[in-house]
Each structure stands twice: as C-alpha cells, then as structure tokens.
Design a protein around this nucleic acid. Structure first.
Length: 945
RNA sequence: GCCCUGGUAGUCCAACUGGCAGUAGACAAUGGUCUCAAACACCAUACAGUGUGGGUUCGAAUCCCACCCAGGGCACCA
C-alpha cells in the first residue's frame, strides 16, 4: 500500500513531510543569523549597519504568557501569529521593528502547579519556558533573540524591586498633580512650608513620629484596613482579583473581608489621570469603558450633618435633594458608630427601629455581628430586603435644621464615598425601600411627571418642598441648576462642598506566597519599615524545601494568612549597614503580586542588557515615542486578551505614570495602540451520562453527533483537557506544517472575532500553499518552472491592485482579507500557461509574513541569496492602478436593468446619456419620462420614474 | 437593572465614507477528471437578500427608532 502511495503522490509535492523539512531548515538558519533583531540607537544592541536601522521605529508586543505546564493549544498563539505576521510585514516594508517575547514566570499559576507536583517553582518555570520556546520556534516566530527574559530572573526582578523603591520613595503632590521624591516632602515639613497633618510642630516630633508622618504620604504604605482574604489560596487579594460574585479570579475560591495590616499602592492618587489619559490612546472603546467604569468617577458633594459626636460627612451625587433627606445611614463598620450610640433609646422609638433590643449598643452589636458573617453573595441576594437598625442618635440636616434619625445598614458600604449617606427616599429607590421597611417619612423634592405612581422618582424635574427657614429656596429649579445652587449654599455655610469620589481602591500589593518578588524592605528595631538601597538589589528568594503557603478550608473566614517566607528564619534576620553602622533588621516576608513583574516589562525590552538602569534614556525615548502627534506614546501595537482590560493594563499604566512623574520614562502612556485578539474555542461532546468523549472521534450523522455508535450532545466553549477537545499547534505542525497552521489561523476571520476551531478546514490553507508551490516548482521533477518573459497586461493590473490592497489590509491588521486577495492572485497565476517571474516573485514576498518558511524556500529556489526578513515588500506601480473604463450598473426604480461601460473620465452628462440610450432601460421605462436621473461618479446610475 | 459588542448562504467570513449582496477567501455539499478502486490533487455546480418590525432616502447589510437573540463588563457605588 505504501508503495502505491509513493508512486501516486509526486515526489516534490508540498505536503506535510516536505513542509517539515523546509521549516526545520529555515528555523535553524534564522536561529543562526538572527535576522529579526532590532537595532537600538545606542548601547550594546545598537547595530547602525543593520538593514532597517534607519527606518522608522515600530514596537510590536504581545501580552507575554505564563508558561504553564500544559503547554500551548491552538487558541493560545493566535495573537502571537498575528503580531509575527504584522512585524514581518512591517520589517519588509522598511520599519525598524522590535518584536520581542518574554515570560511571566512569577505568580500563582506556576506556584499552584509547583505545589501540585512538589517540584520547586524555579525548576518548573525553567522547564515550562523551554517547552514554550520550543513550541513558538516550531511555529516560525521571528522574535528578537537579544530581548528575552523571565520575570523571575534576578537580573530582571532587580528592576521590579527598584521600581517598587521609586514608588515607595515618592509622594503625590496634589497641587502639582504629580508624584515627587519623598525627600522633597521632608524638606517642606522641615521648612514649615507644609504643616504636619495633625498640626504639631515638625521640630518637636521624635524621629519615629516623623517617619510615621512621612510613611503616611508614600505611594506605597502599610495600612490596617479591610482587605480581601482568600483562605483557599492562603493569601490576600486586590479588589481587581475578586470577581463580582465574591470569589477569587484564580481558582474561584470564596473571598472574605477582614481587617489586616497590608501593603497598599496609592493608585487612587492617579484616578483622574488614569481616566482622562484614556483619550490619548488608540484602544478598543469597550476596554476604555471598562477602565472608566472600574475607576468609577462620580461628581457630587460632601455634606456634613451635625451630631453629638461631631459632624458626620456624607457623599451624595444629588445635593439638590437635601431637603428630602429624612434620615441618615452609616455603614455598620463606620468609625463614628460607637461614639454616636447613646446609653439608652430615646422616647417613643418604634419597635422596628430597635430590633427589640434593650439598648442601642446591643442592637448595634447584634446587627454588626450578623453583617460580618454575611458573604458578599448573601449580601447581594438579600439586596431587595433592606435591613438595619437605629443607633439611637439624631443628626441635623444642614439644609433646614431638621433633626433626622441615624441608622446603620449594610446597604451602605464602608469602602465607598465616606461610608455614610443622607437618605432621600423620595428620589432614591434603595432609600425608598428602607423607608418603607422602617416607616420613615418621605418628602418629594423633585416633582414627578403627571401620572407617576411609582415609589422613588429618579428622573429630572422641578424642585419642590425645598425652602429653608431663612428663605433660601430651590423650588422651580431643574436638577442640574438645583445641584449647583445647593453646593454654593453648603460651601458658604461651611457645611459641605462639591467633590468627586471614585470606585477605585488602592492596590493591595502584598501576597502571602513564595513564588514572587521579595520586597526590598526590612524592619528596624522600632518595627518600622526601612527601604534597602539600590546597591543591595536584587533581594533574592531563600531556597526553601517547603514553599507552600498555609492554606485553609476555602470557607474558613476566621483564619489569618501566614507567609511561607516567615518560615525562612535564617533569611529573615539580617545584619546590615544602612548608613548608621551595622544593625539588626528583619526582612519583610510578604512577596509582590504576580502583576508586579508584568507592570513594566515593555520597558525592559528596550534595553534588556542594561544593568545600571531600566533602560538608556536615549533608547527609551526612541522606542516609546508617540506613533502620531498628540498621542500618549508607548508601544505601537500591543496585542492580547481582553481579560486583562482592567487588571494588568491598569496596573501597568499606573506604574508607568509614576515613572513618568519621576523622570524615568518619557511617554505618558505605556501602550499607544491596543488590540484584543478573539478566542478560539471548540466543540466538546458528552454522552448520555454527561461524560466527555474524545471530540476528535465524533462523527456527524444526519445533523446529529455520534461517537462509537452512541448519540452524543454537542457543546461549545473553551478548549481543555477535561473536555477532551484540545488541539495543539504541535499536532497541526505535524499534520500540515507551521506555515499552513499560521495561514489558517490568520484566514479564519478578523483578528478580534472569536471563532470555533475546525481542524478539517485547515486543508484549505494547505491547498493554497500547494498551488503556490506548483506555480514555482514542478511537483514531479522539483525543477523551477518560472519563466523570464513579461507578464500580460491583465495579470500586471491584478498584481498591482493586489499589492495595494494587501498593504492596506496588513496596515489595518486585516490578515484575513489580505490572504483572500493573495489566493485570488495565485488562482489567476494557476490559470496562466507559463508563470512569469515578475509576477510570482512579488507574490512570494507578499506571502512571506504568513508562510515565512515556504516563502524563504521558494525565494531561494528562485535564485536569490540571503533571507527574506529585510527584503523590500512589493510596491504597487500606480501606472497599473489607473482605471480606463468604468462599468456602471443602471437602476430603474431601484432595480438593476442593465450595465453600461463608459470611459473613466466621462462626464456625468455622458454617463447619463449612455445609460438612457440602453435598450433594456428604454424597455423598463416603457416610454415614461424619467423624473430624476442620479449619477454617482464611479459607482452607478439610478433612474427614477 | 445599567453599559458595551455583535447577528449576512449549512459553517467560518467579504462588501471602502449609504451605491450591482459573493470573479473576496475557506470548509462542508453535489457532479465530474485521475484511479482497478480509494485517498490525495484538480475542474465544475448550486446555496442567503443581511435577527424582527418600522423610519429616513432615488437607493439601506451599512444611518435612525423599537424589539428579539448571543457574548462581555458593572451592579445596594449614594
């Protein structure tokens, strides 16, 4: 059987085996010659004689991978293939393209895998990276060989720690609206130019007190605050790492709110700039929207309500409704609750208010206990039923001097605004529901439209019932106007002011895990943090046998984290000379979150061999310069999944802005243009028991699906081992070759669209490459069949139109349409009796970004030396693009009746005359006089009767 | 509930600022060539009026309004 096959398949056919041979050959050559390395303006990576060194710069980047143990499936490299095609195209088109790849090696995924297998994370990381490198090489990726690293390399994380110190050693000057070195703050305190927050005299403070004041201003600080505690992972998490249903983004474990001392980064200082500067970047609108939502800026007012325990400040977006505030609500955890709560209930308090408790203190304690043990999910499930309890205290509404009761209720969140609200049941649905449950009065201050019979009215309308005893009145004003008037009055009275609040919280930055960057921080004998000097970086992890975090039952809310590093006793206690002699210190045992290493890696690509700074400023300015005037600068194209829309992209922007303020980088934004590739998903099949069966072996019969003769049910979703539907790039390379695989992924559809994987469709891309091969090489003899005679006019026109269109499509990342046009040109060439070199050579060059190995091979067989990486991409000759005649479709009353060919430069009148002269048009008109004739130049003629 | 995206042949997708819906492309289907036969390869053929309803226009897949469906984000955020 194998004999007949060998005879039947021509020896020089471009099949999988041939593709293998060609691909390995060129991958070896590329590795040796490194033709994809970009030239820096200065430093060790400067290569002024490189072919593209003088071209315009282009920085193309992918979201780098976590090297997981499972390796890649066909969905993972979609974005990588796209940027490789784009980078190869742009390099050929004359750009100095930097397209590097690195590995995000620290963090939970690697560590979880290490714990599961018992192997050291460093070892696992190394092995996994080797697997990824091999797989990516096999796909023909043309990465810059000089610019690769793992975030867990000491040579890399030295700079992660350095950046931490930069942030630690700065404070946010709200006047100047930028970060400044902490030393400048100290000078301001010393000179008295800036008062100490609690009014004391700087000179009178002890050293420890001074340090405490300064530490409170740093952009990284330690704070006792409510945090997200995830017992299942054994660590605390940032708010971005917790899903809306109160679980960890990684591992899906429950998360509980507990008050703990943790490191925080003051990202909230940058809330406005992070929101506003989104206008400077070329990003998908949906991603910008997600970031804006996450930052959650809302404008309104702070209003102070006087109480016996001092003023209670609330935040409201509706200061215009203040006259309708009939009660107040504080979050159960609000710090003033204890001081407000009196010894006993006031007279005549209804039973629903007290919850039946004998004293306010008891009622408050009971309610707090109840609220504390409610998970976020329960809290949300109960959202419709308002619960709460009266504190026994009253406050004064500053608008009209009325006394209003103060409640605590869990529908007010301690973390948002001031943790206290003025309740206006007439204009707020939540307040309405609470007022109903507790029989509280309602005063409408906005007139609802006629016929309105609902509860709270939240729309626009004229203010009513809004007159103060002193005659001040909002009555008759529209909402916007009333807001302004009320803010002006509050400001004048000193009982409030206009303000802005944010949903964004400070970034919880410490993790109780092993596999992360150690903090470059030690504690002195006073127990206060001391930053290590740059000369002591990097701080490396101690080698440990047991690196697992202490984890707990996922629902063990009342537990506390314990860092693995706290067990490394020899490592923790150190004697150092930090400038005042050798002293004893204790190391910080928390590590940084896995987002740390990925929050600045774009900068390291610029100058990865620079050991004295993150990058030479000359190189940094070169690569991060804006692609267009007025832009925020940064990477010219960044491709990655939308799942990082908030997390990584927000953190990276934050660090970048701090580095910008401190003068370490020149661009305002890290990523000028962002693109999200779609997801490749796949069908999976389950049998009657609901057990997955191998997707590969399922057959389609009469519209149904069958496996081993049994009917199975089809579902659609992610590729995964457990769904038994994983297809790997390695399998595709074996069955078709890397070029076919790349081409297929790029031709499936637009890059940003998610689509199902269909292995049987891959053959279409292989057929195209086979036809291209046959246009150059004789399948039976292996001889090159291309001729040196001139191409005919029609072929040349098609060629140059294709060149023009392919360039346009590639510039816009529309690989799928570019490939379709290449197929069209190739099919045309198939139809020619002899294949002219002048046509097939540009075709090979245009195919090179997608099928680089095949293109190199054909290029060589066509008699060229050297590699394609820096060969000029074809340019369209305008002479072949001019159109001499135009065929106009002619519509009569919207229906196409005929076509007429007219010279391209014909006047509208001539076109009109030609159209009206057509016989079919005359028939359609049936002698009627056209009412109107519309000629759209170059497009069509429309006749209306 | 609010905010984004997106709905075009059996499937994945084309159609530039409204202008001939497919000589954009691919898969699958059907017929054929090659073969003793099959696979590979090659050639050819069909197949939708653009989620639904309305509107603007000489003309709508494209613009506007309402609704339906799918995917994503946020959600007691004051």
């Amino acid at each position: 059987m194998s004999d007949t096959r060998d005879e039947a398949v021509p020896q020089y056919r471009y099949d999988a085996a041939m593709a293998q041979r060609i691909e390995i050959k060129w991958q070896d050559k590329w590795e040796q010659a490194a033709p994809f390395n970009a030239s820096n303006p200065v430093g060790p990576l400067a290569a002024p004689n490189a072919p593209r060194a003088d071209g315009p710069k282009l920085f193309v980047m992918d979201m780098f991978p976590y090297p997981s143990g499972a390796g890649l499936h066909v969905g993972h490299p979609l974005g990588y293939v796209a940027t490789d095609c784009y980078a190869r195209y742009k390099r050929m088109a004359g750009y100095n393209v930097m397209h590097p790849m690195a590995y995000d090696a620290f963090g939970l995924p690697t560590e979880q895998y290490a714990i599961a297998t018992g192997e050291h994370p460093a070892k696992i990381t190394e092995a996994n990276i080797a697997t990824y490198r091999r797989q990516l090489r096999r796909l023909g990726m043309g990465y810059d060989t000089n610019r690769t690293f793992a975030t867990s390399d000491p040579r890399y994380f030295k700079w992660t720690q350095w950046i931490f110190l930069q942030i630690y050693n700065s404070w946010y000057d709200t006047e100047a609206d930028r970060a400044r070195p902490i030393g400048e703050l100290v000078s301001l305190f010393e000179s008295g130019a800036r008062p100490v927050p609690d009014g004391r005299d700087w000179a009178a403070l002890t050293d420890v007190e001074r340090r405490a004041v300064v530490d409170d201003h740093r952009l990284v600080y330690i704070k006792e605050a409510p945090v997200n505690w995830c017992p299942g992972l054994g660590t605390v998490l940032s708010s971005e790492e917790v899903t809306s249903d109160g679980r960890s983004e990684r591992g899906n474990f429950p998360v509980f709110t507990r008050t703990m001392r943790q490191w925080m980064m003051r990202i909230t200082a940058y809330a406005d700039r992070l929101a506003d500067d989104l206008d400077l970047v070329d990003w998908p609108e949906s991603t910008k929207q997600m970031q804006r939502n996450w930052i959650g800026r809302s404008t309104g007012a702070h209003v102070d309500f006087a109480t016996d325990a001092g003023p209670v400040r609330v935040f409201t977006t509706r200061p215009d409704t203040l006259f309708g505030a009939t009660y107040m609500v504080l979050a159960p955890e609000h710090e003033l609750v204890d001081r407000l709560t009196p010894q006993s209930w006031p007279a005549d308090v209804p039973e629903v208010w007290t919850g039946g408790y004998a004293t306010p203190a008891e009622a408050v304690a009971a309610y707090r206990a109840e609220a504390k043990f409610k998970s976020d999910v329960e809290r949300q499930a109960d959202a419709k039923e308002k619960t709460g309890v009266f504190t026994g205290a009253y406050a004064v509404n500053p608008a009209n001097g009325e006394s209003v009761p103060v409640f605590i209720a869990d529908y007010v969140l301690v973390g948002y605004g001031t943790g206290a609200i003025m309740a206006v049941p007439g204009q707020d649905e939540r307040d309405w529901a609470f007022a109903e449950a507790f029989s509280l009065p309602v005063i409408r201050t906005v007139e609802p439209p006629e016929g309105f019979d609902g509860g709270a009215y939240t729309g626009d309308g004229s203010a009513i019932n809004s007159t103060a005893p002193d005659g001040f009145s909002l009555n008759g004003m529209a909402v916007t106007e009333a807001k302004e008037a009320m803010i002006a009055r509050l400001t004048a009275q000193g009982s409030g002011e206009g303000t802005v609040t944010y949903r964004l919280r400070d970034w919880l930055f410490s993790r109780q895990r092993y596999w992360g960057e150690p903090f470059p921080i030690v504690y002195d004998e006073a127990g206060m943090p001391v930053p290590l000097p740059e000369s002591m970086l990097p701080v490396e992890l101690p080698d440990m046998d047991d690196f697992s975090p202490k984890t707990f039952a996922p629902d063990a809310a009342d537990t506390a984290p314990e860092s693995p590093l706290s067990r490394a006793v020899d490592w923790i206690d150190v004697e150092l000379d930090l400038g005042d002699g050798v002293r004893k210190y204790r190391r910080e045992t928390n590590t940084m979150p896995n987002w740390a290493g990925s929050s600045w890696y774009e900068l390291r690509y610029i100058d990865p061999q620079e050991d004295d700074r993150i990058a030479d400023p000359v190189n940094e300015r070169y690569w991060m310069a804006p692609a267009r005037p007025g832009g925020g600068g940064g990477v010219d194209l960044y491709v990655g999944g939308q799942e990082h829309a908030v997390l990584h992209l927000l953190y990276d922007r934050f660090w970048h802005k701090v580095l910008y303020d401190l003068g370490h980088v020149s661009s305002v934004e890290p990523f000028g243009k962002l693109f999200h590739q779609g997801m490749i998903e796949a069908y999976a099949y389950t049998d009657s028991r609901g057990v997955y069966v191998p997707a590969e072996e399922v057959e389609e019969v009469d519209g149904g699906y069958v496996w081993n003769g049994e009917p199975v049910t089809r579902e659609y979703g992610k590729m995964g081992k457990s769904q038994k539907n994983v297809v790997t790039p390695d399998q595709m390379c074996e069955r078709y070759g890397a070029d076919t695989f790349r081409l297929y992924e790029m031709s499936m559809g637009p890059l940003d669209v998610s689509r199902p994987w269909e292995t049987r469709a891959v053959v279409g891309s292989q057929r195209f490459l086979q036809r291209l091969w046959r246009n150059v090489v004789d399948e039976r003899t292996g001889e090159v069949t291309v001729v040196d005679e001139a191409a005919d006019e029609e072929t040349l026109r098609l060629l140059h139109r294709t060149i023009r269109d392919v360039r346009e499509d590639m510039d816009d990342l529309r690989m799928n349409t570019a490939i379709a046009k290449l197929i069209m040109l190739n099919n045309h060439v198939v139809g020619l009796e002899r294949v002219p070199r002048a046509v097939v050579e540009p075709l090979v060059l245009m195919t090179a970004p997608f099928a680089p190995h095949l293109a190199e091979e054909l290029w060589q067989r066509l008699g060229h030396d050297g590699m394609l990486a820096n060969v000029d991409f074809p340019e369209a000759d305008p002479a072949y693009l001019v159109v001499e005649t135009v065929t106009y479709p002619v519509q009569v009353n919207g229906k196409v009746r005929d076509r007429v060919e007219v010279a391209a430069e014909a006047s509208q009148e001539d076109v009109k005359a030609a159209a009206l002269a057509l016989e079919k048009v005359a028939n359609a008109l049936k002698g009627a006089e056209p009412r109107k004739v519309i000629v759209v130049p170059g497009r069509m003629v429309s006749i209306v009767v």
